[in-house]
Design a protein around this nucleic acid. Structure first.
Length: 308
DNA sequence: AAGTGTTTAGACCGGT
DNA sequence: ACCGGTCTAAACACTT
């Protein structure tokens, strides 16, 4: 509850859910993924309300990360020691909020297994082979979806090289192998972002890549910062009322993860990557039955990209 | 030990 | 009343 008269108006509780706050934090980052500690930092930087009672709201936030399908966990690279994983938004939750406003969720984001079966494209065949195995391995729908998200995204990958309408699907061949990599996904993330995370050199267009996929991201500029209108912030409410600008010495965006230049360029095409991720997840589980599905999910993607 | 991640449970609120 | 979404608390396991 707001505390009238206490300090400034900006000390009031922001009208955002934890899901919204977390989504803001993640989307404000260059990599579109953040470790938990940076999500905390983002929220506390911007919303003074959350500088108190940290234990309470941080517990809630962690609960939301685990509970909601719209958040997916990305394991750290071995050369990036630290606690916890990176958290990202599921690519399909871009329209989760009404009119791009974080004030109101359009609907609860839920990954449907049926969505994974929607395609009969050749690229999905491999996935079909492994789907029952993933189920057997205990992958929940969101987890299996995250592993296979790239595969699902390639449903419209056009092997014939033609598309009747003028619409260029983000995953049309032109966009996948074309000059701007728009919309390319892997393991539930923009592939460019994942590649960058895993240390592959990614062109300077990376900052703009995801904008075409996640509408809200379009509100960010290429530096991952948020353009402010005089009256309303990017999240649909007056900025002045509830939001403190981030300290100038402390940029809102986390320090970008440095690419590892020694890694070779990718040799797999997108369907191969997705297929390999699925295969890798299964074999990882065989080797380590105790591994949690979310760990397997991220590790599979990691190993595929690193070893391709 | 502290931080992180997962899960369960209960309460509250708004919409239908 | 029921349901879905959200918030809070708590317990537990795991990792660094």
């Amino acid at each position: 509850m707001p505390r009238p008269g206490k300090n400034s108006y900006s000390d009031q509780k922001p009208p955002y859910s934890y899901i919204s706050l977390t989504a803001m934090a993640i989307q404000s980052s260059v990599e579109k993924m953040l470790p938990l500690s940076d999500i905390y930092k983002f929220i506390m930087d911007r919303f003074p309300y959350y500088r108190e009672n940290t234990q309470r709201w941080q517990n809630s936030l962690r609960h939301n990360l685990s509970f909601n399908d719209c958040f997916i966990k990305i394991p750290r690279r071995p050369d990036q020691p630290g606690k916890g994983s990176f958290w990202a938004l599921h690519p399909d939750c871009g329209d989760m909020f009404e009119n791009g406003s974080f004030l109101r969720r359009r609907k609860r984001f839920k990954v449907h297994r049926a969505d994974l079966l929607a395609s009969k494209s050749p690229q999905m065949i491999h996935y079909f082979h492994h789907q029952h195995q993933q189920a057997k391995l205990g992958l929940s729908p969101p987890e299996a979806a995250a592993v296979a998200a790239g595969m699902g995204r390639f449903q419209s990958y056009n092997l014939n090289g033609s598309q009747s309408s003028g619409f260029k699907h983000p995953f049309a061949i032109e966009n996948i192998i074309g000059r701007d990599y728009k919309g390319m996904m892997a393991g539930g993330l923009p592939l460019a972002s994942v590649m960058h995370h895993l240390g592959y050199p990614v062109s300077g267009q990376l900052g703009n890549v995801v904008s075409s996929v996640w509408p809200h991201v379009g509100m960010m500029d290429s530096m991952g910062t948020v353009p402010m209108s005089p009256d309303y912030g990017p999240f649909g409410v007056p900025v002045k009322a509830i939001c403190h600008p981030p300290p100038q010495t402390m940029p809102a965006v986390p320090v970008p993860i440095k690419p590892t230049p020694s890694l070779p360029p990718l040799t797999l095409n997108p369907p191969q990557i997705c297929s390999a991720v699925s295969t890798s997840a299964a074999s990882l589980l065989e080797q380590n039955p105790a591994a949690t599905p979310s760990v397997v999910k991220g590790s599979a993607l990691h190993s595929v990209l690193v070893h391709s």
